[in-house]
């Protein structure tokens, strides 16, 4: 449904997307995952026809010319892009009619879409007066007015509270179940776990792709989760032969190539420094561990 072949986009001398090739089948919730500045937005903008690639080929829904398939695309940009001085309802009607829907159809659809996004009680509120999460729901609602077969969402949950985030993802699942393919970008690894397929993007390149399970399975190291009151762990364990140490909130993920020796060294080092270990267990890697490992391998 979406094919990218060696797609590159440069802005002046800066390259934002660098030789990206991807193949995305219909029916997926595809997640483009990576840190800020990885090239996610540029990739989505090229797929939506907002930018032309500098080189390479891309086709979306079988068309190379984005104008031809705009009737079938939905798009929620990263930045709220509807009109703050129009009400929720006016925005929805406006976008609906831009897709050529007649008034009767719009009225029926609008009720439906507002219900689905829980925005019905706010339909007469100015978009400027909505919370961040509600704005994103409005963008989603507006994008649903023409029943797109493929929906692009660029970091839809950035700056949105956890409850709204969960609601938002439930909506995406619902849409996907009803047959809409979804292409979503996110910097959050927990959201990557929710996708059917994920591509990791870093510094303009795709460093790996697959289902979350596949990606975890491809992980070559072992991860230990360490709970300790000590906050200076990285410096303390510098010479204990660990591959990497990453902080996860209150806990640390220690990455090793071969477990037995490394972990004994860690334990010894911490004991020598008189630091108590609350907990130290091997865990299965999460997607963030996978991403960090892949990103450092590329570098």
């Amino acid at each position: 449904m979406i094919t990218l072949e060696n797609v590159t986009k440069t802005f002046g001398k800066q390259s934002a997307v660098n030789g990206v090739s991807l193949e995305i089948a219909s029916g997926e919730i595809f997640g483009l995952v990576g840190p800020d500045g990885a090239g996610k937005t540029t990739t989505i903008r090229m797929l939506c026809g907002l930018l032309s690639p500098t080189s390479g080929n891309l086709s979306v829904l079988g068309a190379a010319n984005p104008e031809a398939i705009k009737h079938h695309l939905g798009y929620v940009p990263q930045r709220f892009s509807l009109y703050g001085d129009l009400t929720v309802m006016e925005n929805i009607r406006f976008i609906g009619s831009l897709y050529g829907q007649t008034t009767d159809k719009i009225n029926a659809l609008a009720a439906n879409v507002l219900n689905f996004t829980n925005l019905l009680p706010f339909k007469d509120r100015y978009a400027d007066n909505l919370s961040g999460g509600m704005k994103q729901k409005l963008a989603l609602a507006a994008g649903l007015m023409h029943k797109p077969t493929l929906f692009f969402l660029d970091e839809p949950t950035t700056g949105v509270d956890p409850v709204s985030r969960r609601e938002f993802w439930q909506m995406l699942y619902q849409l996907n179940k009803e047959g809409t393919s979804i292409f979503v970008s996110t910097p959050y690894m927990d959201e990557a776990e929710l996708c059917t397929r994920v591509a990791f993007m870093n510094e303009g390149r795709i460093i790996s792709s697959g289902s979350p399970q596949e990606l975890r399975r491809s992980y070559k190291y072992q991860v230990f989760e360490l709970s300790t009151p000590d906050r200076n762990l990285k410096a303390r364990l510098k010479s204990s032969g660990l591959r990497d140490i990453n902080a996860f909130g209150e806990k640390y993920h220690l990455v090793t190539d071969s477990s037995p020796t490394a972990i004994t060294t860690v334990k010894a080092a911490l004991a020598a420094a008189n630091i108590s270990i609350t907990d130290l267990n091997e865990i299965s890697p999460n997607l963030e561990d996978v991403f960090v490992a892949l990103a450092s391998e590329v570098n």
Binding site: K70, P77, I95, A139
Partner: peptide, 13 residues
């Protein structure tokens, strides 16, 4: 500037 053009461009307008 406001970014609303981004939304307009993806429509068949």
């Amino acid at each position: 500037e406001r970014g609303t053009l981004e939304q307009l461009i993806v429509t068949p307008l």
